[in-house]
């Protein structure tokens, strides 16, 4: 009982926090009149004040505005990343888990081979092939995430397969596509959704890492990873430049982790 209440409470707090961050990012143009790329001459490295809530950076840009707009880009790229991961990962996992046999073995060996590359290294190598840019980063990180998602999907399908009703449906003459769509997917949706949440926080951290390393293309576009890199250079003089995006990044990931954890808190599911 108590555990359930704590979980509910946590879920609400996490969802609220995440909702707030997303809302702030979406509504950025309404919440600030300052262009995040606009450098104001004479207002460089200004400490936080009413005029500049989070201060300004080395070039005189408003950190508050950049943090809000940065959320759009950071979260946008992360969502795209998860998109790149989800579909191929899901299809591979479903196919492997449902058909079993040699299909399963072949697919899983391929996934294991991909999984053998440390994800960030694989993403970096892909960026070297694809070039710099937000889309490229999403592709690179997304591809690096596929094997993990395929594995989790497969495990969930295997568990679902053992349940009676699928066997029953098959006996009733339903085709594989129909069974997967009507029976398997609904059963495995909760854990997969929870894992998609885990993937999202992973995607945010990793795509921001590539942004931080300078592979983001558009230089002046606000992004939490880019801002952390900018802020690092001036941290001793102006700690606020890195603190705002750093805190935003951590809070977002924290909220997603809590939410993903509570989505799937059936006992024994850790």
């Amino acid at each position: 009982m108590i555990a359930a209440r704590t979980t509910n409470h946590r879920r609400r707090v996490a969802a609220g926090l995440l909702g707030l961050i997303v809302l702030l990012s979406i509504l950025a143009p309404l919440l600030t009149g300052t262009d995040p790329r606009d450098a104001t001459t004479g207002a460089e490295l200004v400490s936080p004040s009413w005029q500049h809530l989070f201060g300004t950076d080395l070039l005189g840009r408003d950190v508050y505005s950049r943090t809000l707009y940065g959320g759009r880009r950071t979260l946008g790229v992360a969502l795209l990343t998860v998109g790149v991961t989800l579909l191929p990962g899901l299809i591979t996992g479903l196919a492997a888990g449902y058909f079993g046999g040699w299909i399963d073995r072949a697919l899983m060996i391929l996934m294991d081979a991909l999984l053998a590359f440390p994800a960030l290294l694989l993403a970096l190598a892909l960026v070297a092939l694809l070039g710099s840019g937000a889309i490229q980063i999403a592709l690179a990180v997304g591809i690096a995430g596929i094997p993990a998602y395929a594995r989790v999907t497969r495990a969930a399908v295997l568990e679902a397969r053992t349940r009676m009703f699928i066997e029953a449906a098959r006996a009733a003459g339903a085709g594989p596509a129909g069974i997967l769509w009507r029976h398997v997917l609904p059963t495995i949706a909760p854990p997969l959704l929870a894992f998609a949440g885990v993937m999202l926080s992973w995607a945010i951290l990793n795509s921001a890492a590539l942004m931080f390393l300078g592979y983001g293309g558009d230089l002046s576009a606000p992004d939490w990873g880019v801002m952390l890199a900018d802020g690092r250079a001036a941290f001793r003089t102006a700690p606020w430049v890195a603190t705002a995006p750093g805190a935003a990044l951590s809070l977002t990931v924290l909220a997603i982790n809590l939410l993903a954890g509570s989505l799937d808190s059936r006992p024994g599911r850790e």
Partner: peptide, 22 residues
Amino acid sequence: ADVAQLIQSQWRDLGIDLELIQ
């Protein structure tokens, strides 16, 4: 990169769109 971004910002005020390639 810093110099280029400042120029980009200064020129945008004038209505010039500057794409930066590093």
